[in-house]
Structures are given as structure tokens and as C-alpha cells.
């Protein structure tokens, strides 16, 4: 009986996460690949699936048109892709710059308040992201709180245009993604032994030297994890730039949206998404592969 439970428990531990990944990651991905090779039509659903299980058994008749169309009009997709990658890159960079000192401070503060500080970091997640964006708009508007205060204090006479600028976009991005950067950074910094830092100081390293030669290299796993956590969703982000940005912000996420909703071309939307995933995932896989090579 006991043995049975032990065995059952082990199966559960292994298969639960695997099942989760299979159900919520693999199946949707496979379905998306399927749709990307399908032919669009006006019907319910609005495509003829490339891969079908029907009375005639399995049929697989992939259509390359969707990828060819993207290839043909590559310029229309390249610029939004560059916009998105630029947005994601700088959002990641700014998040890193803000998150690092915060994570450091939390990791080095009293153990008893660390949990409270971490909960405070996560707190914004408890409100809807849209609500937070509108709160930010309320702050940054020409008639918003910040301008009211600046005008009242006599620092400026006319309101400063903060909305529809890079400033407002990146404020929104940082507000949304900062916790995703802080948590892995915290996890890697809290593991950093104080005596290692003291050893460096003892050996003649000044503060900046300690950071450059000890803390920074040892927190690279946290930096990498946090950057991926921010960068990957940020590439697909288009709501924040649409709400806070000016007209120049056509993002790849929005292009997928228009393919899906405006052109009602689910297969092309799926194909773009697959290409995007490939562009993001392949370098990561390659980097990991390189890493493994180097270690062995």
C-alpha cells in the first residue's frame, strides 16, 4: 500500500508539470504551427486545418502560402519587428538598471523584512495591468497630477508633454515588467555569500571593483533569467505602446493582431507568431548549447 503511494507520488511529481507543459504549452504551439500551414477561408473556423483527423483517417496537406506572403511583403513585417525588438531591448535594459539596485537592497536587507519587500514588489500584479496603465496616464497627462504639481510649484508654466513620448512608453513597460526582473535578480543576489564580498574588500578591492569583478559576474544567471522574462513578453507587447505611445509605434504584436482581427487571416497571424518564436527562441537555444559545449 505504502509502496503504491510512493510510486504514485513519484509519477505525480514527474507527470504533473510535464502534463501541464504538454497541455498549456506544447498543444497550443503545435496547434499554432498547424494553423500557420492552413488555408484561410470564410467559415467557422476561418481556415482549413492542414492536419486533420477525420473519417478518412489522418490527412496532412500543408500550405506554404502564409509564409510565402510574409516573405513577399517582408518589409511590412520587418519594421514592426525592429520596433518591437527595440522596445523590448530598451525595456529590458531599463528594467535591469532599476531592478538591480532594488534587488540588491532587498537581498541585503534584514531577513525578516525581505518577505515583506518581495510582496511589495509583487503587489502591482494584484491589480489589472490595464488599470495600472490608466493610472499612469492620469499621472502623465498634460492635465495630470505631475503637471499640476509642477505648475503649482512654479517649475513650469505650460504643461510638459509626457504622454505619447518614449518616456511614457518606457514608464509603462517598466511599471509592468519590473517585478519579473527583480525576482530572479533577487534570487541570485541573495545566494551571494557576504564573505565573498568581504574577501574581495579584504584583498584591496574598492566598491566599484567589487561590483565589477565579483557581484556582477556572479549575478549573471539572474540577469539572464530576468532579461528573458522581460524581453520575451515585451517583444509581443503592443497594448502599452498603443495606450501610452504616439503614432509611430507599430509593434509586431499589433501586426499579428491586425492579421488576426482585421484581415481575419488566422493562418498568416499564426505564421508570423511562429517566425517570431523562432527568432526569439533559437538564439537562446543556441546560447545554451554553446554554454554546454564550453563546460564540457
Amino acid at each position: 500500500m505504502n509502496y503504491f503511494f510512493q510510486k504514485f507520488g513519484r509519477i505525480l511529481v514527474i507527470w504533473l508539470p510535464l502534463g501541464w507543459l504538454l497541455l498549456f504549452f506544447m498543444f497550443p504551439l503545435v496547434e499554432m504551427i498547424n494553423v500557420s500551414f492552413s488555408e484561410a477561408r470564410r467559415a467557422v473556423p476561418p481556415y482549413i486545418p492542414a492536419f486533420q483527423i477525420g473519417s478518412g483517417g489522418f490527412t496532412f496537406s500543408p500550405v506554404l502560402d502564409n509564409y510565402l506572403l510574409i516573405y513577399e511583403y517582408w518589409e511590412d513585417y520587418l519594421w514592426p519587428a525592429i520596433n518591437s525588438i527595440r522596445l523590448a531591448f530598451f525595456s529590458t535594459l531599463y528594467c535591469l538598471l532599476f531592478a538591480y539596485p532594488m534587488a540588491w537592497w532587498i537581498a541585503r536587507s534584514n531577513k525578516s523584512i525581505q518577505h515583506i519587500l518581495l510582496i511589495l514588489v509583487l503587489m502591482p500584479f494584484w491589480t489589472s495591468s490595464l488599470l495600472r496603465m490608466y493610472a499612469l496616464i492620469g499621472l502623465l497627462n498634460p492635465n495630470g497630477f505631475i503637471n499640476d504639481v509642477l505648475i503649482w510649484a512654479g517649475i513650469t508654466v505650460t504643461p510638459i508633454q509626457m504622454m505619447q513620448t518614449d518616456f511614457s512608453i518606457y514608464s509603462g513597460m517598466i511599471l509592468t515588467y519590473l517585478p519579473l526582473m527583480i525576482l530572479p535578480l533577487y534570487a541570485s543576489l541573495v545566494r551571494l555569500d557576504v564573505s565573498i564580498i568581504e574577501a574581495a574588500a579584504d584583498l584591496g578591492a574598492k566598491k566599484w571593483d567589487i561590483f565589477r569583478t565579483i557581484v556582477l559576474p556572479l549575478s549573471i544567471p539572474g540577469i539572464v533569467a530576468g532579461s528573458l522574462l522581460v524581453f520575451i513578453p515585451a517583444v509581443g507587447e503592443f497594448v502599452i505602446p498603443a495606450l501610452l505611445g504616439g503614432p509611430e509605434q507599430l509593434m509586431l504584436g499589433k501586426v499579428i493582431w491586425t492579421e488576426f482581427f482585421r484581415n481575419r487571416d488566422w493562418p498568416v497571424a499564426a505564421a508570423i507568431a511562429i517566425i517570431l518564436i523562432a527568432i526569439i527562441i533559437l538564439p537562446i537555444v543556441y546560447a545554451r548549447y554553446q554554454d554546454r559545449e564550453r563546460i564540457s
Partner: peptide, 28 residues
Amino acid sequence: PADRPVNIMFQNYALFPHMSVSNNIGYG
């Protein structure tokens, strides 16, 4: 600490895990 003519060997040794033995020794 950086400027004292004093060095310390920690109980857990506090070696820099990302550096080679030579770089550890040569750090100071």
C-alpha cells in the same frame, strides 16, 4: 579593510567561484 596590511582567510574560504585558482590567488 582594503587598505589594511591585514588579510583574512574565511572559515568557508570564500573563494570566488567564477574565477580560476590562479585568478583567485592573483586577485589581491
